[in-house]
Structure formats: C-alpha cells, structure tokens
C-alpha cells in the first residue's frame, strides 16, 4: 500500500441537531484517485468539504474527530486555514470561473500568494492550462472573459486555476454533473493524467465514473462510511449488503 496522505479518524459532523457524518474512519493514499459514492444526502459532499474546512463557512456546523494531513491535524487550534486551502484545492459541482479573463482566473491564485512578476505569471498560466489540457483551445483568447467558454472548458479553467497554486490534494465535488458526455470524458481523461502528481478525491453520483477513474472507492450512506476499498472489489464483490444494493441500482 502506498503512502497515506490523509488519515481521518472518528470524524463526526453535526449540523445543528442533524448528525451528518457518523464516526468516519478513512485513509486516503497519496497519488491515488479515491471516489466517494452514495445516494444524495448521504454526506459524501459534506465529508469532502471537511477536508479543506469549507464547512467552516456554514453556521451551526460542529466537527469533532481528527483529520491528519501528512500527520498534522487540520482541525487543531492553530491551523492556518488559508494555507491549508492552498495545499488542498477544490473543484466545484458547477463550473465557477470568476467573471474575468481566462488569464486573470488562472493568475488569481499565484497573485494572492505573492507572485507579481509578469513573466513568471505568464509561465504559470501556460503551464497550468497545459496541465489542464486546455492550452490549445484557449491560447488565442486568454484575455477574453472565461464566461464565454463552454461548460467543459470552464470546468477545466477551474482545474487549471487550482493547479496554478500548486496544491497537493485535489478535491472534486461532482465535477462533471453539469457537463455533457464529451466534456465529461475529457475531464475523466484529465483526472487520469493528474493522478500522477496529485492525490485526488472525487465525489460522484455516477457509479460508472467511479469505476472508470478511481483506484479506491468509499461508499457512504446516511452519514456512515459503509465500506471502502479497492474500486474493483467494491464493484465486483462488495462485503456489505447495502453496498451491493446500491451499486446494483436497487436504491439511490
């Protein structure tokens, strides 16, 4: 087994009176794609958002337990959330490029983290767009609004924007649910390329997608982590009856 990047132990999340995550224990391997599957409202997105502390933004959320990133608890008191989010980036369900040019979108992260030099920024922008397999499509329109691109291109702008801050972990929250099949295929191919350099955790509704892109799959149900393991065995011989029912389409 490869190196453990993120180790979650006894994680509970309460949203007001609602117990949204129940005692979750999970280890995420480095340079692996981990898929989180489960029916709507099972807590998989909520879980994803505990990993870069995006749930902090929501009032009434209480988290306890431990999440270790390279052995350090990201919920410890003195954790710097800003630099944590620089290390653990996120791609959202709906493509959300900022309403500015493609260039400014990609350069946003490096700029806020202190890169001012124009040549250096140019380099980062090109490198990130190439890494997101988008350079050829947008190199002629770098200075036009990113909102003029297609949905799939916008999502790749968001991925490039993320790569520009050089994170270690990529969280993807149903990144293809708003895209057509062709754009989805391109994003999936991209994920295969990116996993060489990044640890990727992807939430998906689409079980075929989980089977195609991930090496490890975790199945959530009603806030419980029911089962996790190598994707192939989860899909071919699940140990839990509920996992089997879900992947064979009996509910969800």
């Amino acid at each position: 087994m490869a190196q453990v990047k993120i180790s979650v132990s006894n994680l509970n999340l309460h949203y007001g009176d609602f117990h949204a995550l129940k005692n979750v224990n999970l280890e995420v391997e480095e340079n692996q794609v981990t898929a989180l599957i489960g029916p709507s409202g099972c807590g998989k997105s909520t879980f994803l958002r505990t990993l870069n502390r995006m749930n902090d933004l929501i009032e009434g959320v209480k988290v306890d337990g431990e999440i270790l990133l390279d052995g350090q608890n990201i919920y410890r008191q003195e954790e710097d959330v800003v630099s944590l989010r620089k290390r653990i980036g996120m791609v959202f369900q709906r493509p959300n490029p900022f309403p500015m040019s493609v260039y400014d979108n990609i350069a946003y992260g490096p700029r806020i983290h202190g890169t001012k030099n124009k040549r250096k920024l140019d380099e980062i922008v090109e490198k990130s767009l190439r890494a997101a397999v988008l350079w050829d499509e947008v190199q002629d329109r770098l200075y036009k609004s990113a909102l003029g691109l297609s949905g799939g291109q916008q999502q790749r702008v968001c991925i490039a924007r993320l790569l520009a801050v050089e994170p270690e972990v990529l969280l993807m929250d149903e990144p293809t649910s708003a895209l057509d099949p062709l754009a989805t295929m391109k994003i999936e191919e991209l994920i295969q390329v990116l996993k060489k350099d990044y640890t990727i955790i992807i939430v998906t509704h689409n079980m075929q997608q989980a089977a195609r892109v991930s090496g490890v799959t975790a199945f959530f149900l009603n806030g419980d982590l029911i089962e996790y393991g190598v994707t192939e065995s989860i899909f071919t011989k699940p140990t839990d009856k509920r996992t089997e029912d879900y992947i064979t389409g009996r509910f969800g």
């Binding site: 995006m54 800003v82 989010r85 620089k86 980036g89 959300n96 900022f98 700029r111 924007r161």
Partner: peptide, 19 residues
C-alpha cells in the same frame, strides 16, 4: 460559488471581497 472558489484557493476573506 465565487466566494467559495476564492476561499478554496486560499484567499483571505478580504482578498475574496476585494479581488
């Protein structure tokens, strides 16, 4: 999502608002 994306990239709240 604009605000979330900005914060997820490691912006401070002030950077997200201003930029």
């Amino acid at each position: 999502e604009y605000k979330e994306a900005a914060l997820a990239l490691g912006s401070t709240r002030w950077q997200a608002i201003r930029l």
